[in-house]
Design a protein around this nucleic acid. Structure first.
Length: 251
DNA sequence: GGCCAGGCCCCAG
DNA sequence: CTGGGGCATGGC
């Protein structure tokens, strides 16, 4: 079971990637990454950093097979979007990305993410900008962030900058304690905390519930919760979320 | 042009 | 602890 770049990079877990033709591009690890489905395997074989990012060593075959056995609808989602991997992204980048995500849509989150890169990030290639470090974002004022279109999230970003060091403690905490810890940051609630735990820390027992997922749970899994999908709740969530957005809930 | 978007804060009961 | 209004902005 191979990774599918299209499903993995455009399922709403990362906002760093663009696609032109068959080429996927992002600035990560301080360099420009260019990939397509054809050359992916050989590129990643020689690039441990990318292999870790794309989570190439995890038990996707086992997880997809188990989840497919749980219920037919989830099985159909996995068939349709097979090869969706959960990325191991930089915690800082995920924290800021999902602060931007609240009461927002994916298209605009991506645009706001790029705005922060251009305004505060390092230029890595011609007109290619890395996501800004905490130190780079520290230069921003609330007025400046609002002028850049961050809206009511501007003070949340400032608090995240102030608290960024607490991300270092997350690996040592249980998922539940880690969520509580993350929620001490202004603007981080249960949903954003869960996204950080899944997309940066690979916690399979975290389960982000946004408006789309609430719809799915209500209509297709009434009375159930994350425990129904254990021990792969996070992966199930991502398939269900992606299918709901793309397929409009078609079986 | 109104509705909605990968929510959360804050305040009332 | 639970419920509901308000919030900036742009895509549709």
């Amino acid at each position: 079971m191979d990774i599918n770049l299209e499903q993995t990079l455009f399922c709403g877990q990362s906002f760093a990637w663009t696609k032109t033709g068959s080429l996927y591009e992002a600035v990560l690890f301080g360099r420009c990454i260019r990939l397509d489905e054809q050359s992916f395997a050989s590129v990643v074989a020689d690039d441990p950093e990318l292999a870790a990012y794309f989570d190439m060593d995890w038990e996707y075959a086992k997880a997809q097979s188990y989840l497919s056995s749980l219920d037919p609808y989830l099985a159909s989602c996995i068939t349709r979007y097979e090869g969706l991997h959960l990325l191991n992204q930089d915690p800082w980048e995920v924290l800021i990305s999902f602060l931007l995500s609240q009461n927002n849509n994916i298209k605009r989150i991506r645009s706001m993410y790029q705005t922060l890169c251009r305004a505060f990030g390092s230029e890595v290639g011609t007109q290619k900008f890395a996501f800004p470090s905490p130190q780079q974002l520290e230069m921003a004022t609330e007025a400046e962030l609002r002028a850049l279109g961050m809206g009511f999230r501007a003070p949340y970003l400032l608090d995240a900058i102030r608290c960024h060091a607490l991300l270092d403690e997350i690996p040592n905490l249980s998922t539940e304690k880690a969520a509580t810890h993350l929620m001490t940051i202004k603007g981080v609630g249960p949903k954003v905390a869960a996204c950080i735990l899944v997309f940066a820390f690979h916690r399979m027992d975290a389960f982000p519930l946004d408006t789309w997922m609430l719809k799915v749970m209500k209509s297709r899994y009434p009375g159930k919760d994350a425990s129904f999908f254990e021990p792969y709740a996070a992966l199930a969530q991502q398939y269900l979320f992606h299918a709901e957005r793309l397929g409009g809930g078609v079986v």
